[in-house]
Design a protein around this nucleic acid. Structure first.
Length: 828
DNA sequence: AGCACGCCGACT
DNA sequence: GTCGGCGTGCTC
C-alpha cells in the first residue's frame, strides 16, 4: 500500500519455460504507456538470455527479497492475448498440472516467441596473443576471420567438446566480447511487382515507349505481357507480379531490368504473405439441402443449444453428420460469430476442407503442424484481426484451440472419440475436446461433439444430462451398413490353410473385388515390416540400445528402427549372440503386407499409407488422390486410413489382425478396438452396393468382435460402463498418471517406492503402483508409473496441489534431485 | 528448460 | 595440471 503513492510499475511475466511461477520485472518510464497485460515483452532472464514473455498483470507492489530487472521492450501495441485467453491458459495449467509457460509455448507459433542467442566477437584492441593457450588462440583466430559467430558454430569448427570454458577464459582475458542477438525466425514473404514508370502517364507516352522498343523484341514482349495482365489505363487495373510477366513473356529478369533502366517499367517489392488469401471476403454460402431426417436432427440440436452448451451428435457412418455441421456453422456465421472445426489429425483436413470451402469460400482458414511456422504466424495474425479477419471459420487440429478468437460462437469436434485429441508428450498434456468445452464457456459458445462411436465418457455424460444427445441411425440415401465376416485365423493356422498372413477367406474376397474392378482397404495397426526379429537358433532379439523395446525391421531401408526414440541401425548379417546366420522376421506390419500381397496378387496395384510413407508434406494428398482416381486397387495402412476418408469404389475392408487390438493391457483397449474396427468398416460400401468387411482373428467369439459384427455400440457401452464402475475408472473416477524418470535403475525403484508410499499417506488405497511399464526404459531413462484414482465428487484441484507438494518434497531429497516427475491428467 | 558453477575422475 | 562429464541450483 505504501508503494501505491510512488509511480513505479511492475509486470508479472509469463515465460516460455516450465516454471511454476510468474517473474516480476520493472517497467521503465518510457515503456509505461505500452506495457499492458497480454502484450509480448522482451525480458532478460538469467545472466544473459533474452526471451519473449507475456505480460500477465501490471501492478505497483514492489517485490521483496530480490532486485527486479527492467523489461527491455514491449512488442505489441495492443494486447496479443486477451484476458479470457490468459484465463483459459491458466485453467489448462492447473487442470493438467503443468506450468502456464508450457501452455504459452504450445499456444503461440515459434516465430512469435523470439529468443536471444549468444554471439561472440573478437575485441579489436587485443594484442597479447602470447597470453592465450593453443586452443584459445585457435578460437581467437577463427573469430578474427569470421567476424561474428555463435558458440555452437565455434565448437563445431574447432572440434571442441566444452566451448563455454574456453569462451569464458577468453572473455576473462578481454580477448573477446559477447553480445546477445534476438534471432528473428519469422520473415514476411515479399514478392516483386511491376508497374509503369510514373513518367508514363498516358497512352500517347506508352505508344512512344513501344516505338522506342522496336529494336528490342524481348523487352517489347515483356511490355505487351505486362499490359495484358495489368489492364493498364483500363477499368480493371491489377497489380502485376514480376514472376507472372516473365512467365508470360518467356523472358529473363535481365530484360525487365533493362525496361526499368529505360524508365518504362518500375519494379517494387511488397509483402504478400503466405496465405494465398483471396482479395475479397466471400459471404456467399452454398449449402446442400438437408434430408428430412438430417433436418430433424438439425432442429433438435438447435433446441438443445437453447438449453445447454454441449451436445453430442451420435450418428452412424454416412449418416451425413458433416452436412448438419455445415448448416449449424452457417447459422453461427450469420450471427457474426467465429466457428472452430476441430479434427483429430491433418490427414483428414484434405477432404473436409473441400466441403467447407464449397460452402463458405475463402472464409475458411486451416491450421495444423504441417504448415511452416511462418505460415502459422500469418494465420495467427490474420485471426487476430477479429471481426475484420478473412477467416471466420477455422479448420484445424487440437492446437487451433489457442488461436486468438475474439467472438467464438460454435466449436465442432469431429470424431470426438479420437485419442489423438489428447496431447501425449510435451506438456501441456491436454485433451482438446475437454479443453474446448472450457474455452467455449469463456465465449458463451456452443460445442457440438460428433462421432459414430462416441467415447464411453462422452456418452455417459449424455446419460447423466451433462451433455445433450441427438442420434442419427439412418445412413444417408439408405446406404446399407457393411456385412462383417470373421475369418478365423487360429483355425486356418491349425489346418495349415493360411497363405502367409492371409486367410483363404480374405484372399478370396480380395480377388472377387479385384475382378469387379472395386477397391480394397487393408488395415493393420503396425508400421514397418515386422515388429521384431529373432535368431532362429538361440532366440536372440535385436533391441534398442536406449529403450527397452525390440527394434522393428523396415525392409525398404533394410534397417532396424526403434519406434520410440527413432534410433536406427543396419540389419545384422548374423546373430551377435551365437553367430548363426539366420535372423527371422516375426509378426507383420504394413510393409510386409504390401510385399506379400504383391506376391499373391502380382497384377494388383498396391499403395501403402503409414507414418513412413507420408512423411513428406503432400504425401497424404498424393496417396489419397491416387486412390480416389483409381490408380491404386489395394490401399494398405495403419490408423491413418480409418479416419473419415470416403471413397466410392471401396467394396471390401480387411482387418489383418484384430488380436493385437484386443490384447492391449489397458482398460480402454476394448473401447478402442471397437471404435477402430467400426471406423475402418465404415469405409466399405457406398452408394451402389453393400460393402464387406473381413476381420481376421483367432478369437472369433470375443464379445467385442460380436459387437462389431452387429454394430452394437450400446452393448459395448453397457459392458464398458459397468466394468469401469467396478474397477473405479473414468467416468466414475478421475485418473491421474504420474510417470517418473531417472537414468539409474536403482534410483528409479527407490524413488517409485518412496513416492507411492508418501502418496498413500494422503490418498490411501486410491494410489496404485508403482508399476513397471511394458517398456521400462526410453531414451536412456528408466520409467515407473503410479496411478491415482480420485472420486469425481472430491475437489480435485486440492488433490492435485497435494500431489505436486508431495512430489516436490521427494525431489528435495538428495538422491532424487535429478528425478523427473511427469503428470498426466485423464491419460489416454 | 537452459545455463553456470563446482566437483570429480581420467589422461598427458 | 587440464579436459570433459555430470549433478545441482537458480532464474524476477
Amino acid at each position: 500500500m505504501s508503494n501505491s503513492q510512488n509511480n513505479i510499475w511492475y509486470v508479472d511475466v509469463i515465460l516460455p519455460k516450465p516454471l511454476m511461477q510468474y517473474y516480476t520485472y520493472q517497467v521503465p518510464a518510457e515503456l509505461i504507456d505500452r506495457a499492458k497485460p497480454g502484450c509480448r515483452t522482451i525480458v532478460q532472464f538469467g545472466k544473459k538470455k533474452y526471451y519473449t514473455g507475456i505480460i500477465r498483470s501490471l501492478h505497483q507492489n514492489k517485490p521483496k527479497g530480490y532486485e527486479t530487472k527492467d523489461i527491455s521492450d514491449v512488442i505489441d501495441n495492443k494486447p496479443l492475448v486477451e484476458e479470457r485467453h490468459l484465463k483459459f491458459w491458466e485453467w489448462i495449467s492447473s487442470y493438467y498440472m503443468c506450468s502456464v509457460g508450457d501452455v504459452y509455448k504450445a499456444a503461440l507459433p515459434a516465430g512469435m516467441k523470439l529468443e536471444s542467442e549468444t554471439k561472440v566477437l573478437p575485441a579489436a584492441e587485443f594484442e597479447n596473443l602470447d597470453e592465450l593457450n593453443e586452443k584459445e588462440e585457435l578460437v581467437f583466430q577463427y573469430l578474427n576471420n569470421n567476424e561474428v559467430a555463435d558458440i555452437d558454430e565455434i565448437a563445431d569448427v574447432i572440434g571442441l567438446k566444452n566451448p563455454i570454458r574456453i569462451i569464458k577464459s577468453l572473455m576473462d582475458k578481454k580477448a573477446i566480447t559477447a553480445v546477445e542477438k534476438i534471432k528473428n525466425t519469422y520473415r514476411p514473404k515479399m514478392e516483386s511487382f511491376v508497374r509503369l514508370h510514373p513518367n508514363i502517364k498516358s497512352e500517347t507516352e506508352l505508344n512512344k515507349a513501344f516505338d522506342d522498343l522496336s529494336r528490342a523484341p524481348k523487352q517489347l514482349n515483356i511490355l505487351i505481357a505486362f499490359i495484358s495482365i495489368s489492364g493498364v489505363f483500363g477499368e480493371n487495373q491489377r497489380e502485376v507480379k514480376k514472376a507472372d510477366v516473365l512467365k508470360k513473356a518467356d523472358a529473363t529478369a535481365a530484360a525487365i531490368n533493362a525496361l526499368s533502366d529505360k524508365n518504362i517499367l518500375e519494379l517494387y517489392d511488397k509483402e504478400t504473405g503466405r496465405l494465398g488469401l483471396g482479395d475479397f471476403k466471400s459471404n456467399e454460402t452454398k449449402l446442400n439441402p438437408l434430408s428430412e431426417i438430417q433436418e430433424n436432427a438439425h432442429q433438435e440440436i438447435k433446441q438443445h443449444f437453447s438449453e445447454s452448451d454441449v451436445c453430442l451428435l451420435h450418428g452412424v457412418t454416412s449418416s451425413g453428420k458433416t452436412e448438419i455441421y455445415i448448416h449449424l456453422m452457417q447459422e453461427a456465421l450469420k450471427e457474426g460469430k467465429q466457428v472452430l472445426y476441430l479434427l483429430p489429425e491433418i490427414a483428414l483436413t484434405a477432404q473436409i476442407i473441400n466441403r467447407l470451402q464449397t460452402a463458405f469460400g475463402n472464409q475458411v482458414g486451416v491450421y495444423h503442424s504441417k504448415f511452416s511456422d511462418a505460415e502459422r504466424v500469418e494465420i495467427f495474425k490474420e485471426i487476430n484481426k477479429g471481426a475484420l479477419s478473412k477467416y471466420q471459420v477455422i479448420l484445424g487440429v487440437r492446437s487451433s484451440l489457442y488461436l486468438p478468437f475474439s467472438n467464438l460462437g460454435l466449436v465442432i469436434i469431429d470424431e470426438e472419440h479420437e485419442t489423438t485429441y489428447k496431447q501425449h508428450d510435451p506438456a501441456p498434456r491436454y485433451h482438446a475436446r475437454d479443453a474446448s468445452i472450457v474455452l467455449a464457456k469463456v465465449f458463451g459458445a456452443k460445442v457440438l461433439l460428433g462421432s459414430a462411436t462416441p467415447a464411453v465418457e462422452t456418452y455417459f455424460n449424455t446419460k447423466t444430462g451433462k451433455y445433450k444427445l441427438t442420434e442419427l441411425f439412418t445412413r444417408h440415401k439408405n446406404i446399407e451398413l457393411p456385412k462383417v465376416t470373421i475369418a478365423d485365423s487360429g483355425e486356418a493356422r491349425r489346418k495349415k490353410k493360411m497363405k502367409s498372413i492371409f486367410t483363404p477367406l480374405l484372399l478370396e474376397e480380395i480377388e472377387k473385388s479385384l475382378a469387379n474392378r472395386e477397391q480394397i482397404i487393408l488395415f493393420q495397426n503396425r508400421r514397418g515390416y515386422s515388429p521384431y526379429m529373432e535368431c532362429d537358433l538361440c532366440g536372440w532379439v535385436p533391441k534398442c540400445t536406449h529403450c527397452d523395446v525390440s527394434l522393428t525391421y523396415h525392409k525398404y531401408s533394410d534397417s532396424l528402427v526403434c519406434h520410440y526414440c527413432g534410433h536406427a541401425e543396419k540389419t545384422h548379417t548374423k546373430c551377435p549372440a551365437c553367430g548363426n546366420l539366420v535372423l527371422q522376421t516375426k509378426g507383420f506390419g504394413t510393409e510386409k503386407i504390401e510385399d506379400e500381397m504383391a506376391l499373391y496378387l502380382p497384377e494388383a496395384r498396391i499403395g501403402r499409407m503409414d507414418l513412413d510413407s507420408t512423411r513428406k508434406k503432400h504425401a497424404h494428398e498424393i496417396l489419397i488422390g491416387q486412390f480416389e482416381n483409381y490408380e491404386i486397387d489395394i490401399l494398405i495402412g495403419t490408423q491413418m486410413i480409418t479416419k473419415g476418408l470416403d471413397f466410392d469404389r471401396v467394396s471390401l475392408v480387411g482387418i489383418l489382425n484384430a488380436d493385437n487390438l484386443l490384447s492391449f493391457p489397458d482398460y480402454r483397449a476394448f473401447e478402442r478396438a471397437f471404435q477402430l474396427m467400426a471406423q475402418v468398416s465404415g469405409r466399405a460400401g457406398r452408394k451402389h452396393k453393400r460393402g464387406k468387411v473381413v476381420i481376421q482373428t483367432s478369437q472369433p467369439g470375443h464379445p467385442v468382435i460380436k459387437q462389431v459384427i452387429d454394430t452394437d455400440y450400446f452393448s459395448l457401452f453397457k459392458q464398458q460402463i459397468s466394468e469401469r464402475q467396478i474397477f473405479k475408472y473414468p467416468p466414475f473416477f478421475r485418473h491421474i498418471k504420474i510417470t517418473i524418470k531417472h537414468k539409474k535403475p536403482e534410483i528409479i525403484n527407490k524413488a517409485a517406492y518412496e513416492l507411492a508410499k508418501q502418496l498413500r499417506h494422503t490418498f490411501g488405497t486410491r494410489v496404485l503402483g508403482p508399476e513397471t511399464p511394458v517398456i521400462n526404459r526410453i531414451q536412456d531413462y528408466y520409467i515407473r508409473n503410479i496411478h491415482i484414482k480420485i472420486e469425481k465428487d472430491k475437489a480435485t484441484y486440492k488433490a492435485k496441489a497435494f500431489i505436486i507438494e508431495i512430489a516436490e518434497r521427494l525431489k528435495g531429497h538428495k538422491d532424487f534431485k535429478s528425478l523427473q516427475v511427469i503428470y498426466d491428467v485423464d491419460p489416454y
